[in-house]
């Protein structure tokens, strides 16, 4: 048996010292919101060129950046998509693992919509209404500057102009990037309309965040899991429930759901692109310069993505629900991408 033992040991050593195997397909990870757009670009790219179709994983913005910043090497991803900008801490992590040259590209905007079934009433709410309906703690209704647990049960309680319907909103769980955006753009947006709460931002940033970005847990906000299709199904069956999800899902299901107006503004290409519609967020992807030239096709994929026929106003991504950035911004980012200019670290200031 001794010989067999030696053989087994040798095999184990050989396996562990195998260098990371070569790869000829671009590897992309990241946000589930950017995923529908990146996959369309990837497929076109694969069909129209001789490069293999890039492989795209939907890991979430945070998860994707973590994988991306693990280091340089063929076992690490080449590009990561994100539905929010990279944080300083993530930039530092990248640097500490040897990922020094990162190119940032802004793709366009995604609108965050509040919607209900087409059979339900047409609603028009303000961000303040949204905050009062959704937050965990709200200012005391009697007007004093103190916080109480959210007492509002119906939309009429929040704003007499709204229908007397129980507040029930179905939305993404805390693990979703969409939820982060909802907290920041929707709930915080309404929180800031209270001057004393807005002032808190400068005094006690942590308290400000916990007050203005926490959603109630008493049953009026229901977490629906990462699958937006389920939210749509729920809305279909209950006309009085509202749902929170990305613009592309609204666009693809207009026969089932319709958007709630925010301060009289309906979400569409123009209003989101111009900033008139308040709940819009930018989407990005980040490219690892060290992998360009080693893994074939990275630059060509980026070129396809930053081409007007993809991300322009008439582009195929717009058909899928992407809201394009204004033309001059697009050109700036396209140049950035073409020259693979690296992030300096000053972007976070």
């Amino acid at each position: 048996m001794k010989n067999t033992h030696k053989l087994v040991l040798a095999a184990a050593l050989a396996l562990s010292s195998v260098p990371a195997m070569a790869r000829d397909t671009v590897s992309i990870v990241g946000s589930s919101t950017v995923y529908p757009f990146a996959t369309v670009v990837a497929e076109r790219f694969g069909r129209n060129t001789s490069f293999p179709t890039p492989k795209i994983e939907s890991t979430g913005s945070g998860g994707g950046l973590k994988l991306f910043c693990q280091g340089v090497g063929t076992q690490h991803p080449d590009i990561t998509n994100a539905s929010r900008r990279m944080k300083q801490s993530e930039f530092e992590l990248c640097k500490s693992n040897g990922v020094k040259d990162i190119t940032e590209v802004q793709i366009g905007y995604d609108g965050l919509v509040v919607a209900n079934s087409v059979k339900g009433p047409d609603l028009d709410i303000s961000l303040r209404d949204l905050y009062l309906a959704m937050a965990k703690d709200v200012p005391n209704p009697n007007g004093t500057e103190e916080l109480v647990a959210n007492p509002y049960k119906t939309w009429k309680d929040v704003n007499p102009a709204l229908p007397n319907v129980k507040i029930e909103v179905v939305g993404p769980p805390p693990t979703s990037g969409t939820r982060d955006s909802f907290n920041e753009l929707g709930v915080e947006g309404g929180c800031k309309t209270f001057p004393w709460l807005k002032a808190m931002k400068d005094q006690d940033k942590n308290k400000y965040k916990s007050v203005c970005r926490s959603i109630r847990e008493d049953g009026h906000y229901i977490e629906a899991g990462e699958n937006d299709n389920l939210i749509i199904q729920k809305l279909e069956s209950s006309p009085n429930i509202l749902g929170v999800f990305g613009f592309s899902f609204l666009d693809q299901n207009r026969s089932i759901v319709k958007a709630v107006k925010i301060k009289g503004v309906s979400p569409n290409m123009e209003t989101v692109g111009s900033g008139e519609y308040p709940m819009a967020r930018s989407m990005y992807f980040y490219v690892k310069k060290a992998h360009v030239g080693v893994i074939p096709g990275i630059q060509e994929y980026v070129k396809e993505f930053t081409n007007d026929r993809a991300w322009g106003d008439e582009g195929y991504l717009a058909d899928k629900g992407l809201i394009p950035s204004p033309k001059n911004e697009r050109m700036k980012w396209a140049d950035n991408a073409k020259s693979l200019s690296s992030m300096t670290g000053k972007e976070f200031e």
Binding site: S16, V18, R23, E57, Q75
Partner: peptide
Amino acid sequence: FIGLFGMPRS
């Protein structure tokens, strides 16, 4: 497998 042995992902 992926971290230690360096096998490719997916």
